[in-house]
Nucleic acid binder design. Structure first.
Length: 172
DNA sequence: TAAGTGCGTCGTT
DNA sequence: AACGACGCACTTA
């Protein structure tokens, strides 16, 4: 069904000022990022196999990029991203999201127009919610109409915090 | 103004 | 066929 099925995945922690994120890698690149688990559910996911050289490099890049975005800055160099879990539509949305610079925001409707499907507004919301690499793929910069907050799969507190770091204001 | 309702719309499951 | 991280028009308070 999905091509990443059956391939070896590596899960490695990224310690940040905001807590311990978990990065997931396939042989093609960074395939997922998880927010810190709420109550230190210590899911250390220690990898038994040796970590391949390329993945270590990707992890270093991802860690630095994450730190930068959490600080409200541009991510800088990103490791290759493995977005193969998504549909064509979702990848299209995720690509559009990566063009939104820190401190900038777009509306769900605006993103829909940007990708050439002005009426697929609600579907864009769905694609944002399915974003496997939040923060680095900045779905938090997508607001609802009237600059309202909209939703966030990682919890609205994260969305507020990330936007605050970037100096973005929004309506309540 | 603010909050609630209804409906259009469309990708995903 | 049902369900959304939506948008818009419209109604109430």
């Amino acid at each position: 069904m999905n091509p990443t099925c059956g391939t070896q995945l590596f899960e490695l922690p990224i310690e940040t000022t905001e807590g311990k994120f978990i990065a997931r890698y396939s042989e093609k690149g960074l395939s997922g990022l998880e927010f810190p688990a709420g109550a230190d559910s210590s899911r250390a996911k220690t990898v038994k196999a040796a970590i391949p050289r390329p993945i270590r490099n990707w992890h270093r890049a991802a860690s630095q990029a994450l730190a930068r975005v959490l600080a409200g800055k541009a991510p800088g160099k990103l490791p290759p991203l493995d977005l193969s879990s998504g549909t064509d539509f979702q990848r299209c949305v995720w690509t559009a999201l990566q063009k939104i610079m820190p401190g900038q925001t777009r509306g769900y409707g605006e993103v829909a127009r940007l990708i050439g499907r002005p009426k697929a507004v609600r579907a864009v919301g769905g694609a944002c919610g399915a974003n496997p690499i939040p923060v680095l793929i900045p779905c938090h910069r997508v607001l609802a109409a009237n600059r309202k907050l909209g939703g966030f799969s990682g919890g609205l507190d994260w969305k507020r915090a990330l936007l605050a770091r970037e100096g973005v204001s929004f309506s309540r």
